[in-house]
Design a protein around this nucleic acid. Structure first.
Length: 462
RNA sequence: UCCCGAGUAGCUCAACCGGCAGAGCGGGUGGCUGUUAACCACUAGGUUGGGGGUUCAAGUCCCUCCUCGGGAGCCA
């Protein structure tokens, strides 16, 4: 099949020239007596190509009837457009209806609500906004791999099914082949997971960090980029049950190195998207978030602030702002605190570091003061926390003390603890919620609208 | 999971104090000499989210369930 050229390439190359072939889907048809205009989009870019169809063309009636959404293949000459609104148009010598579209096609030329579009997630990708969102999502993934590969990082594929029920945060989805209605029981009456597929209780991963650490202590610099699952009953615009996460892990790295890398990383990704998806960003600017482009450009050029948790608490307390939850040293920053910090006090991305030990995970390095850990959260306006990371506790004795103190079972971490026995070294890493990054890059305000087929509590359609 | 709000035609929304359920867009039919969310005319389209209750009478009031949105918690 001769598919022809992409709209993106046709517009880039320009004309005039003859014998151009284009395949795509009809966005709209404007028909009058002598001539009809068919907007054809192929997803390669935001723009549709205007196809001019003389009423004398044999397939004229078929094309007009084929309907919005139909698949067509056009052959014609690329000529300067007589009308305003586009530079080039395709004067058709032949239009073939490859697949017609039923009149019930739900996408109108009018604006739809995101709520409605979510119910037709298989078709919403043919709309302008979702075209832009998923091209940005693609460019961002590309940028992430490029950033790390250029710096010699190893992409590690950590397991999706995990046997450790102790990875820290979050409820986990259980993985089993046992008969749910009648599982085998032990003598005490408990479910006998020894008879399950993996001969133990298994779940979907909530993080690849612990496994990534073992690779960092062999390859130096590594990163994960893959799906992650949380069975939390979270119903917010920022949480999904299935999402993608990027987790770099670097050996011989401390918290300052970590902050520096995370900063470079965010800037690189943002600059890459601005460069690759300029048209999409401008469209999102117009329809989704005013000021998007300026905000992204500012991310690339500005310096990210860094402040300690202690300083953040002091500044919040001194701000005079009335918070629903009062700020106090020792309690975790609430969403309202984080947003006030990044949106009002700093007005930009800010790293908060050195959190109280008691509110953070066991694997974070205990600072010399004995009461804080070398943690870092990157807070950004609108989204809140986008990156969470830390320098890891590399001292075996301190780590063991932390595990025991939290009532965790040492034997569950035997392989993780081995890394501290055999050539341990200071190392650090962070986790980036990929969808939150895409939200930040596109201005979209609901995580369900930056995932192709979102999974959230009560919903797994498509 | 908790708090608040919403659910009316395929979509987006009206409908006053409880009194005949409407518009725009989309669809269909016809028209229009180059359109840009094209335009003009005509036309079809409804168990007012489900169930129960109050009332002569319920889209409207009460109870309950479901779904969606906003906020919170958990977090990325």
């Amino acid at each position: 099949m001769r598919r022809g050229e992409k709209v993106k390439d046709i517009l880039k190359q320009g004309g005039p020239r003859s014998g151009v072939v284009l395949s795509g889907w009809v966005r709209s048809v404007r028909d009058s007596k002598q001539v009809a205009f068919v907007m054809v989009n192929d997803g390669s870019c935001l723009e549709s190509l205007q196809v001019v169809m003389d009423a004398a063309l044999p397939s004229h009636a078929d094309v007009v009837k084929a309907g919005t959404g139909a698949a067509v293949r056009v052959t014609g000459d690329l000529v300067p457009s007589q009308g305003g609104g586009q530079q080039w148009e395709l004067k058709a010598s032949c239009i073939e209806v490859v697949g017609s579209s039923d009149p019930s096609y739900p996408l109108q030329k009018k604006r739809h609500t995101f709520e409605f579009l979510r119910t037709i997630a298989h078709l919403r990708v043919r709309s302008n906004v979702f075209g832009a969102v998923f091209r940005v999502r693609n460019a961002a993934s590309h940028a992430i791999h490029r950033f790390f590969q250029e710096r010699g990082f190893l992409w590690v594929h950590t397991p999706i099914i995990t046997g450790s029920d102790c990875e820290g945060a979050g409820e986990m989805f259980q993985v089993t082949t046992l008969e749910l209605g009648n599982p085998p029981r032990t003598e005490e009456g408990k479910i006998d997971f020894a008879q399950d597929f993996f001969a133990r209780q298994t779940s979907l991963t909530v993080s690849g960090q612990l496994e990534a650490e073992t690779f960092a202590l062999a390859f130096g610099d590594v990163y994960t980029f893959g799906p992650t699952f949380r069975a939390e009953n979270s119903n917010t615009p920022r949480h999904a049950s299935e999402f993608w996460m990027i987790e770099p892990e670097m050996a011989f790295f401390d918290l300052q190195d970590n902050v520096a890398l995370a900063t470079d990383f965010i800037k690189y990704m943002t600059a890459f998207v601005l460069e690759q998806c300029g048209g999409d960003i401008d469209f999102l600017e117009q329809w989704v978030e005013k000021g998007l482009r300026a905000r992204l450009e500012q991310v690339v050029s500005s310096q990210f602030s860094v402040m300690t948790y202690t300083e953040a608490v002091e500044r919040l307390a001194a701000s005079g702002e009335k918070f629903e939850y009062p700020v106090k040293w020792g309690i975790d920053l609430q969403t309202e605190h984080e947003r006030h910090l990044t949106e009002v006090l700093v007005k930009g991305p800010v790293f908060v570091i050195d959190y109280p030990k008691d509110i953070k995970a066991f694997y974070m390095k205990v600072n010399d003061d004995g009461r804080t850990v070398a943690a870092m959260d990157l807070l950004v306006p609108r989204i809140g926390e986008i990156i969470g990371g830390s320098q890891r506790e590399h001292r075996l004795d301190v780590l063991l003390e932390r595990i025991r103190g939290l009532g965790l079972r040492e034997e569950d971490y035997w392989w993780y603890l081995d890394t501290r026995r055999f050539g341990t070294c200071p190392h650090a890493g962070f986790g980036l919620g990929f969808e939150r990054a895409v939200m930040y890059l596109t201005g979209m305000s609901n995580i369900r609208d930056v995932i192709p087929y979102p999974r959230v509590p009560g919903t797994a359609e498509f």
